[in-house]
Simulated scan of single mutants.
Amino acid sequence: MASDHVELKPGLETTRAQLARAFGDEEAAERASQPGIVPMRKPFKKLFVFSDPHKSKEHGYNFDGWTEGDDLGPVFDYTGTGPTKNQVLSGLNGTLLNHQEQGLELHLFISDGHVKPGGAKKQRYVGRMVVDAEDPYQERWDYDTKDNLRLVYVFRLRPVELDQTDVRPSDAVQAATKTVVLPTPPKMEKPLGKPGAKSKKTEKHSTGQTVANVPGGERIVTRREGQLVTAFEAHLEKAGHTFNGFQIRVEGEDYVLTPDLYDATDHVLYEAKGLTTRPNVRMAIGQLADYRRHLDNADTLRVAVLLPSEPTSDVKALLKAEDVALVYRTADGFAGWPLAPEEA
């Protein structure tokens, strides 16, 4: 039975063992030493998430912490569990992703020093959170404990009540200490390791659009960009092209740049947009200009915008003036691909 009552108030300092005794069941002691996602289903129906931002610094990548957020408020980025190989959206990560459907209250803690005597890690309670309904996670790349590059999931957590949340500037995502350009494998449909394979996508990327209930009312969440990239990857694969992506951390910034697609065979960097509108094309032009500055052989790198349909003649003229190639989807493939020799 639960004992050692603990009242969860923002700023509370405790330990995982104390929390296990207070909220756990007969397996609580074992759970106290498990990974950073710890379900306490009976009788409290809680899910404890423990963030330790200092752990990943040994590899130079640190995704955990508060971000600027958006018009809905701040967001805490939390890296899922799984110390080796590619992380998966099942097991404990699946529990976190689906905590609301499972009826589990999500509570966030941050490691903050050690308890003396004994040396146990001190856990500071941040507050009750919820996985963002619109954009629940982002895919990032990191090195595991064996120094192998692997996929990780960074979950986007939002406070349930901001005034009941311990938000501190010191807990923000740490800025990169140097610029690092990391080539990443292509988005996969099947497990990594097989030539030309692609890893399974979630429903998040498989439908044209969906309606998400998030704070501020219903919002339409478009999925077209992901569909477009997936279709173009299949097109490249069929043509025998090698392709991948990049993850760019810029010195002094906490933001991660993630170009949509790099065709290594043709040395072309693509930025995809889900809508064929002037504002989207203008954004893509700016993004490509930003990305290419950080990539090797930038002087020979070609850049292109990938669109779901043919734009207007003046938008075409804009792209040509900026020396940006255009590829767009048609009923039977992609117009503008392969890029014409004069675009080289």
Rank of each mutant, 00 (worst) to 15 (best):
340 A>R: 14
271 E>V: 02
50 F>D: 11
143 Y>K: 09
192 L>D: 11
53 P>G: 12
84 T>Q: 15
331 A>K: 14
258 T>P: 00
226 G>M: 06
272 A>M: 06
55 K>I: 10
333 G>K: 05
229 V>Y: 01
279 P>H: 04
323 D>Y: 10
7 E>K: 07
267 H>A: 13
329 R>G: 04
35 P>K: 05
259 P>K: 00
218 E>Q: 13
253 E>R: 10
344 A>R: 11
9 K>A: 08
17 A>G: 02
133 A>D: 06
75 V>C: 08
317 A>W: 04
262 Y>D: 03
39 P>G: 05
288 L>I: 03
216 G>R: 10
257 L>S: 01
33 S>T: 15
80 G>P: 15
172 A>C: 14
142 D>K: 03
64 D>L: 02
86 N>I: 01
196 G>P: 07
311 P>S: 08
123 Q>P: 00
259 P>A: 00
233 E>L: 03
309 S>F: 01
57 K>L: 14
90 S>G: 14
249 R>Q: 08
45 K>P: 04
293 R>K: 13
221 V>A: 01
149 L>S: 09
126 V>Y: 01
268 V>E: 04
29 A>K: 10
59 H>S: 11
104 L>F: 01
10 P>Y: 12
185 P>G: 10
138 Q>T: 03
212 A>D: 06
189 E>M: 10
310 E>K: 15
299 D>V: 12
77 D>W: 13
181 V>D: 08
239 A>W: 08
147 D>G: 02
170 S>P: 01
138 Q>R: 10
57 K>C: 03
123 Q>A: 02
306 L>R: 06
106 L>E: 08
151 L>V: 07
208 G>D: 14
113 G>L: 05
318 L>E: 15
210 T>W: 07
295 L>M: 11
163 D>N: 15
28 A>F: 00
319 L>S: 10
86 N>S: 12
242 T>L: 11
257 L>W: 14
3 S>Y: 06
15 T>Q: 05
97 L>N: 08
235 H>Q: 09
320 K>H: 10
252 G>S: 02
194 K>Y: 13
224 R>W: 04
314 D>G: 01
308 P>L: 09
277 T>V: 05
71 D>S: 12
272 A>K: 06
290 D>T: 13
19 L>V: 01
277 T>W: 03
274 G>C: 00
322 E>K: 11
35 P>Q: 11
245 G>V: 00
34 Q>Y: 12
21 R>I: 06
283 M>I: 01
177 T>P: 00
7 E>P: 00
317 A>K: 12
161 E>D: 14
89 L>Q: 14
195 P>I: 01
187 K>S: 13
258 T>K: 15
4 D>M: 13
339 L>M: 05
328 Y>M: 04
